[in-house]
Structure formats: structure tokens, C-alpha cells
Amino acid sequence: MENMKKSYFVKLLREVGSPDQTLQNCMQMVMGLMERIRRYYFGVDLNTYTNDELALMMVIDGCYILRYINNLSISGSLYSDNKLRSRNIALDLVLLENQIPFFVLEYIHDLTVQKMQPQSNLTTMLKVILDHINPFEDPLKLENVGTDATHKHILGLLHTCYKPIFHELPIISTIPTAHSAVELDRVGVKIKPNKTLTWPMEMKFKKKSKFWHKPTLKMPVVRVDNFFEVVLRNLIAYEQYSPVENYVTSYAMAMHMLVPTPADIAKLGKSGVIISHLGSNEKASNLISSICENVNLPDFYYMEPWKNIAQHCNSYWPRNLGVFKGTYIDTPWKVIALLAAIVVFLITVIQFFR
């Protein structure tokens, strides 16, 4: 990738015009931010790099990222050249270890891309590439982000895109009760895609309003593939080691509770809330379970729907209906046997009263 970085770096400087002067301006700007940049990488040994070397690294990486994303935002297609390379680049930009300070990108953007396109906005540009690696069917929105807001890095921007509309949550004292998708189906809970999301990871439980209505858990539609795994792992790592809210961790933990087995993945797939590209339900279940290993859960953004689900599951009729379904009608053969038993019973009663 180093040769590609340098190629994009040179191309961007030439496109701006006066490449030597543009490079000098970028280097001077980054050198002026050097103390702030070194503080950004607190805990990382950067003593092997001189200020000049570190500044040049920042400028090359920044220009490469901006040139790639600018081309993408203009063409609108992630697959304009090599598919595999383009998808890997998009994913690499949200790896926690690949982040460079957002303020460096902003300054380099102002000295390069904005010179060519005065109306250009860095956050809007970045959204184009983040949409391509967003595992949820619902596209990302900038309403909660703001185009003029600053962020820690590109991964931090993606994290903000998933931010819920509420902020304050009580610290949980106990892990909420886990109910799998199969268990919910047994107690009469219907699972459906959430078509009216107020935030990308919203899950809500609607109690039945009428006798013939089923209680419903509504969830965002998600594509489970390697992109899903990498994006969520990096967002969770960011949450675990940064002073930010844990809504992605909450989502991953909620999914972990819902799909502990391949049968649960199949149930959510049939409900239309999971689109798996992993080839088997077992792989999808194992992937989601592994994401939550060794993860701390200081708060849980789904306490309200989970409490309502637990209340429904523990109530008399749903609980006993679940036992009945699991015992007598969970397979076609059991249904046939039950019907046959009822017929025999009715015949016996009729003959008795004759």
C-alpha cells in the first residue's frame, strides 16, 4: 500500500496546483500541530520518528485518504477500479490502529481538496465511504453528527453516526435476562424489521394492543458478513478503551442474547432482520457470539424493551403456551400425533354417551 499512498499523494498535490507550495503549506501546518499530534498517540512510542518524519507521514497518509475518498464521492461507486482492493481500503480506514487525528485531516482537506472544491465538506465526503461499510440496511444519517462537528478520527465519526437520540442511561447492576429468537417465537413474540428507526441500532418491543395482535420485537435489518465483524469489533474496541458511550457494545450484546444457536439465526433470517452472507447459520451464530467475548457491559441501551420482553415471557399464558408448543406442536409429526389423539378422544367420548 505504501507505493499506492505515495502515488495518490503526488496526484492530489498536482491536482491542487503548485505541488511544491502545497506540500510546503501542509508540512508547515502539521509541524505547527506536532505537540498536539504526539499527545494524540499517548502510550505509543513515537520517539523513533523525528518531527519531520512524523509530519511527512501525516501529510502522505492524509492526502492519500482525501484523494481516495474525493474520487469515490465524485464517482459514487466503490467499484470503479479493483473491487477487492477498493473494499479493503474502505475497511482499512475504520481499523482502530489505522486512525490519524481528525483535525489533521481537516487541515489538509482545507489546504488541498477545498482549494479545488470550495463547497467541499470533510464529514460529507467521509460519509460516502462509511455508507459502503455500514452493515445495516438503513443508510447512515448525519442529523446527529452535524457537518461542521469535529471528531477524534474516522472511526469516531462512524461511531457518532450510530449515536441514539437519548444520552443519559442508568448504570446496570445486573445483566438483563437473555431470551433467544427461538424462545421468543415459542411465547408468541413476532420479530419484524424496524421500518421507523429513530437511530440505526434501535430495537423496540411493542405489546399486543388487541387480542389477535401478537407482541412484536422490531429490529434493524443487518447484513452479517466479514464487514459486519470487522466494523463492530473496531467500534467495540473504541468504546472499551475510550470515554464514549457503549451503544455498539449494547447492540452486539443484544444480538448475542438473541442468536446463541444456528436455529436462532435461521429464525431471524426468516423474519427478515438478518441477511447472512457467511454460508451457514452456525458460522453466523459463532461470529456474533465471539464478538462479545471479554467485553465489559457498563450500560445497556435496550433495558426497556428487554424488561418488557421478560415481563411477557414470565406471564402465565405466554409461558404455558411456550411449553405447550415445545411439547406438542414444534414439529409436523407432533401436530399429527396431537390431532390423532384428539380425534381418538372425541370418538371415545361419543361412543361412551351412546
Rank of each mutant, 00 (worst) to 15 (best):
T177F: 01
T147S: 07
D131M: 06
L122V: 02
H159T: 07
L140Y: 07
K141D: 12
K195R: 14
L197F: 04
G156D: 13
V187T: 11
E143Y: 11
V182L: 05
P193Q: 09
Q117M: 08
K207T: 15
I172Q: 12
H179C: 05
A181G: 12
V113L: 00
K206H: 14
L140G: 08
L130Y: 06
D131F: 03
F166I: 14
E137T: 08
H159K: 06
I154A: 07
H167L: 12
K115D: 00
T123L: 02
D148Q: 09
Q114H: 04
C161S: 06
V113F: 02
E168S: 12
F211D: 14
K210H: 15
Q119A: 05
P193T: 10
G146T: 05
V189I: 14
F136T: 04
K195E: 15
N194F: 05
T124S: 15
V187S: 06
F211Q: 12
F211V: 11
L155Y: 05
L111K: 04
P193L: 06
L155P: 08
P164E: 06
K152A: 09
L184K: 01
L140R: 08
A178N: 08
H132G: 01
P118C: 00
I165S: 13
V145T: 08
L157S: 02
V182D: 09
L130C: 09
K127D: 00
V113R: 01
F136K: 06
V189A: 02
P164I: 01
L130T: 08
M201F: 11
E202S: 08
S120G: 09
N121H: 05
H167W: 10
L157M: 12
P118I: 00
V145F: 04
T123E: 04
T112M: 03
H159D: 10
K206E: 15
H159P: 11
V189M: 03
I191M: 04
A178Y: 01
E168G: 01
D138A: 15
P164D: 05
E143M: 06
T160G: 03
L130F: 07
H132C: 11
F166Y: 14
T112D: 01
S120C: 00
P139Y: 07
E202L: 04
L169V: 14
